[in-house]
Design a protein around this nucleic acid. Structure first.
Lengths: 352, 352
DNA sequence: CTGAAAGCGCTAACAA
DNA sequence: TTGTTAGCGCTTTCAG
């Protein structure tokens, strides 16, 4: 029988001062039920008096339960945005201590709704404790969400979301705001008459346009603040890098006064070769997301600003918080979590 | 006797495959000595084969040792930079799991070397496991450091450091670089002829000039990139806010063309009242550090950019890493850790 | 130099 | 509804 309670109180101390057993204390601490109201009150009071908080180490050591989570995100190639998201999931799952997490990561093709649907069906088969996904195909996501709801499986969104669904948690950056911010950084303190907005060709199959909100934020800012400014849209093909050089050369030789360039998708590195080969002191380029190749371009000075955030932080956070809430049966402190937009410039990129 | 080892290997598994006891495994894992070379080798091999890693939860649960650390930082008033640093220490100490940390936080008066010296003596009396401090009074810090070295007490720096000392760890932002970056943000895309650099009067007692590196970074940038630009230095007194309005009004009425203002200390909010009362669309103000009052000024649009970082992150990081290294007898992965400089603007400050 | 064993604080299954 | 107890994986003391 332990006698002295010098330092931090343990569950044992609580049990003793409340005059109950450790098991009972555990029950009220974790709301496991099967406790009379009277006892509950006694225990609560004891906890209050002693200022008891559970020792997370002991807790996670003792519980050996495994929880199975599924993630559904676009497939990616090396160095992509979604690879970072993936990494965040893995690290997050590993760092959850209130239970052992196993992860099933499913990928779908962003150009193909069917791939999303079939992946979501597979997930349903697995009967996970929770699902984390992003929301590109609106209707398909809604269908999936209602399936999950029926099966009482909680779900969370990362990167983007669908507002009127009953998701438990969201982490991402406000794309519209980031677009406006990009427009600000591109045009501040300048007398801007024309802007080139470089976009990616998406073929007919690409129904999804995941960058639309950011682009709209960008365009709305320009319209409101620089109504006279002309925005030229230039399409390049991400799959035909050789052609892009020509497309860009052609455009800029036809529009020699256009000095301001923006790309609202995450692949501003696609135009790096052009920028490199056609240096122009007066040019200002703004892009998004800190992909390795974008950072290179920033370092070389071809890009002025990159608007970004720690990509994997979003998926890390959503993974850890979601798992904790699902396991403990609690709700997150905040449901919608917008992460801060960082500005990266050649001068402050080193320690990012 | 445990039989099955399905999932992650435990110290028990290692012991069994090496044909030794758990105690022995522990000794080689933590280099506690008292193990024959032969046994050591056997154990190492077993660890290798099984891919064993210690369970941190079980580890910190089992070890009940208390470690006593001392921190030595300037005293502060509510809302100050050093209050945030203090908070980071507290949170960091609480989140260390490889041992129980107790903290003694000592404060000194930044205007008074003696106060530093006497505080450092007190710390020595306490015989702490380690010391974390900042480095304002150079000689006094060097003396203190050599005392610590003699007593074999490791120490770490936060915020700023003295390069040629044998400190174990440092977290901070490169002040010189941040100054240059501020100069860049203030002057980019502008045709700047004159700048007002607002400084704080420090009386004769104030031998320390903790903002000098940042100021030099700022001034050097201007000199190198805008050699024609005139930098006016305006002194205000942080203790006489009423006077400042007059000083600033006088200066700016005498220099109506000065539109660019910088403050390289952390208290740009001191000029907020002047800015508020004398609105000027063409003015650009750049400050440092995200103190609450600075953020207010940013929100109101009186300041354009604030260069900062999560202040408490520095002390949090230094606390957790330093404690871990001291306790485990290891060295940090990186000794000098420069944290990223964030740019805060009205448009991206909300989720910071 | 090595092994045995008693905890660390908590959980969960079982007994009452 | 409540109490009891055998671990979770590791540390550390004490014997050998």
């Amino acid at each position: 029988m332990k006698q002295i309670s010098n330092s931090t109180p343990t569950i044992f101390d609580v049990a003793r001062t409340a005059g109950v057993s450790r098991g009972t204390v555990d029950r009220v601490v974790y709301n496991r039920g099967r406790v009379s109201a009277k006892t509950k009150e006694k225990v609560r009071k004891a906890i209050e008096i002693l200022g008891y908080t559970a020792n997370p180490n002991a807790s996670s050591l003792a519980k050996k339960k495994e929880y199975h989570f599924a993630c559904l995100i676009p497939k990616y190639s090396k160095g992509d945005y979604w690879e970072e998201i993936y990494n965040g999931f893995i690290e997050g799952a590993a760092s959850v201590t209130c239970g052992t997490i196993t992860l099933d990561i499913h990928h779908y093709d962003q150009t193909d709704v069917e791939s999303f649907i079939s992946a979501s069906k597979e997930i349903l088969q697995g009967n996970p404790a929770g699902v984390i996904m992003n929301a590109v195909f609106k209707e398909a996501v809604i269908d999936f969400a209602s399936e999950l709801a029926r099966k009482d499986i909680p779900y969370a969104f990362v990167d983007n979301k669908i507002d009127d669904l009953e998701y438990m948690l969201y982490y991402g950056v406000d794309p519209y705001k980031s677009g406006s911010f990009g427009a600000f950084l591109l045009t501040t303190r300048c007398d801007v008459r024309e802007i080139a907005l470089i976009r990616l060709i998406r073929d007919a199959k690409h129904k999804a346009d995941p960058n639309a909100p950011r682009r709209h934020g960008f365009l709305d800012y320009i319209e409101e603040n620089l109504p006279e400014c002309i925005v030229h849209t230039v399409f390049i093909n991400p799959d035909l890098p050789e052609d892009n050089l020509n497309i860009l050369s052609k455009f800029f030789s036809e529009h020699p006064d256009v000095k301001h360039i923006a790309m609202t998708n995450s692949r501003v590195w696609l135009i790096d070769e052009y920028l490199e080969k056609n240096p122009d002191k007066g040019r200002i380029v703004v892009g998004f997301d800190d992909l390795k190749r974008n950072l290179e371009s920033l370092r070389k000075g071809n890009i002025e600003y990159l608007i970004t955030r720690h990509i994997s932080l979003q998926s890390f956070k959503v993974m850890t918080q979601f798992a904790e809430c699902v396991i403990n049966g609690t709700l997150p402190a905040r449901r919608n979590n917008y992460v801060h937009m960082d500005i990266l410039h050649k001068m402050n990129m080193d320690d990012y």
